[in-house]
Amino acid sequence: MNITLKLFATFRQDRFKIEQRDYPDSILIRDIVAELGIELEACGIIMVNGRHALPEAPLKNDDTLSLFPKVGGG
């Protein structure tokens, strides 16, 4: 299935801003995070189609997965 990946802030470094990738139907968010070489603990906000999602959540064709690192400044 086709998934659009959007990366933000430091996750873009040495990766990309936006990319489309093809994955098997059984893939979970956490699998994609691992494939990107991102530690799950480094993720702050995880969104699918603009809504919060858990790492264990499955995806469906044409979903957009957005990953943000932890942001703590003020």
């Binding site: 802030a9 603990e41 702050g44 906000i45 919060h52 690192p69 932890k70 942001v71 703590g72 400044g73």
Partner: peptide, 13 residues
């Protein structure tokens, strides 16, 4: 959910 397993400290700022 936002900061879950962070052991305190800072973010990417």
């Amino acid at each position: 959910r936002l900061y879950g397993s962070s052991d305190g400290g800072k973010g990417v700022e």
